[in-house]
Amino acid sequence: MPETNLTMVNRASFGSVFAETLRQNWKQVLYWGLGCGAMGFFTISLLPYSGFLEAYQKIIEMLPPEFYQAFLGEDTAFAATPEGYLSGEFFSWIVLMYALYAVIAGLNVTVNEEESGTLDILLSLPLPRWRVIVEKTAAFAIIITGMILLSFVGLWAGELLTDALVIDTGRIAESVLNMLPSALLVLGFTVFAASIFRARSTVTRLGGAIIVGSFFVELLGGMANQTSLARTLTVLSFYHYYDPAGVIQYGFNWENIGILLAATVVLLAGAVWRFQQRDLGV
């Protein structure tokens, strides 16, 4: 009999891939979170200047109504409120930055390792394939959450410096957290795409397409009339369920959050299933 196999003696530890992914990527929380937080700080710090919001409203009114209606609703007066301003000038686009990171993170779950060949080493260890997807995705979900929370710190710091500002910090917090389901959906989509297509370039393009596509589908749908196909298609856009203007005015929309999270779970389940079935690295 061979000398004792050391793996046989010990049980393969659960969470090791999760911990290593966090260890390797935690600095991204600082880079992206502080970057986006600084943008939030800058955006909110403009608010106290006298006449700023009035000037902002005039700019909004100069735009074609369909354009701002797509993101801010039909009430132009809302645009002149601090909440409306933050919604239009920060929350409406910063989510795209987190979605972009979600694509990068999604690439790091399997396809980057598959293309570089390190996945061969990883999966030659006593590690089921589903654990690679679940543990790495969980780690990146936490990293994205950390980034998003840091952007709240930026907004909150900016709010502290603006005594005259009457704005509900709780609503800002909700608006910040509202970005998470959208980012997770893009993460889930990218992981799913990587479970089908093995080429990093293809997955990157698909990840980019869902961000840009969702944005423009929502934009064009918002500009179209209620019964048009363009409006109907908005249900396919994650941006449709993001609704920053609605959340900062009325709080979380749990139905939208539920739809995004459910879609994320479905995509991840599909990714696990497909990844379990197929050949690797060919």
């Binding site: 891939v17 290593e20 990883l122």
Partner: peptide, 25 residues
């Protein structure tokens, strides 16, 4: 593997530690 690819940004020790942790060292 024949075409060996390891995590380039890790040190040799970190690679060993990572693999050992997955194996439940």
């Amino acid at each position: 593997p024949g075409e060996l690819s390891l995590w380039k940004h890790l040190t040799g020790k970190q690679v060993v530690n990572y693999v050992a942790s997955v194996r439940g060292d």
